[in-house]
Each structure stands twice: as structure tokens, then as C-alpha cells.
Simulated assay, not measured.
Amino acid sequence: MTSEATITAFRRAEELVSRRRPLEALRTLEPVLDVDSDKPSVQLLLGRAYFFSSQLQRAENAFLRVLDFDPTDHYARLALGRTLQRQGRLAEARAQLRLAVTMHPDEPAYREALGEINTNIALRSS
């Protein structure tokens, strides 16, 4: 696959994920993964497609790969936190969301996600 074809496939997969068509995005990403599987942007998009298709363990693995490349990627921490939340692993989710908020404190969506986790944990413990 040429570099231009890889970029085109990646952009198409991004569009499909944004339109909530994750299974099509995963198919579109297959040739990209053959060439660029070690790029954080590819793993992040892969994780999002897995997340939206409810393949949560695969999403978790993709987000963890992104964090292996760059532990300071606050969006990957948010996505990992949301993935862990959907798996019912609230304490682990809270840890990731706390890190995301610490890294990017001006993002209201991060604070909102952390507040939601804290509320769920409080409700479970009462």
C-alpha cells in the first residue's frame, strides 16, 4: 500500500468512526495496520473503533499501546478510562481519568467523566 493510499484509508476510517460505523472503520483500517500499526494515531483510532463496536478488551489494549508510545497522551487516558468504566472497573477507570484531568485540567469533558466515575463509585459503596 502506498503512503497516499494509507493516508486515504486512515482518513476514511476516521470518518467512519465519527459517523458511528466502527465495524466498517475496522475493515478500512486493516491495510493501514499492515503498514503503520506502531503509530500512536493508528492505535488510537483502532481503539476508538473497538470501543464503539463494544470490543472493550481490544479497545483497552489499543489505548494501552498508545500510552506505551506516549504516557502523557491525555486523550488516550480518557479513552482508556471510559473503556474501563464500561467494563465495570471503576477504580481503574478513576485512576486513568484523574491522570487525564491532571494533564489537561481545562477540558470540561475530562472533569465531567471523572465526576461521573466518582458518583458511580460513591453509589456502589453506599
Results as ranks from 00 to 15, higher is better:
119 T>W: 13
88 G>H: 04
4 E>G: 00
76 A>Q: 09
15 E>Q: 14
80 L>I: 09
24 E>V: 01
7 I>F: 07
104 H>P: 07
87 Q>A: 01
72 T>P: 09
66 V>H: 10
79 A>R: 10
20 R>P: 09
110 Y>N: 03
119 T>L: 10
36 D>Y: 13
121 I>L: 05
42 V>H: 01
24 E>S: 04
29 L>C: 06
123 L>C: 02
10 F>P: 05
73 D>C: 11
83 T>G: 03
23 L>G: 08
20 R>K: 14
6 T>E: 12
37 S>R: 12
111 R>Y: 08
75 Y>D: 13
91 A>E: 13
42 V>D: 00
86 R>K: 03
50 Y>M: 00
114 L>M: 09
63 F>T: 06
100 A>N: 03
114 L>Y: 07
104 H>C: 13
47 G>L: 14
8 T>S: 11
38 D>H: 12
72 T>A: 10
102 T>W: 09
18 S>Q: 14
49 A>K: 01
116 E>H: 10
35 V>S: 14
77 R>F: 05
65 R>Q: 07
48 R>I: 06
109 A>Q: 15
23 L>P: 01
120 N>G: 11
61 N>I: 10
72 T>S: 12
42 V>F: 00
7 I>A: 10
82 R>Q: 15
74 H>S: 15
34 D>I: 04
26 L>M: 02
87 Q>P: 02
56 L>V: 00
19 R>S: 15
7 I>R: 10
109 A>N: 13
76 A>V: 04
32 V>C: 05
66 V>S: 05
89 R>N: 07
7 I>P: 03
61 N>C: 07
102 T>I: 13
70 D>V: 06
101 V>W: 10
90 L>I: 10
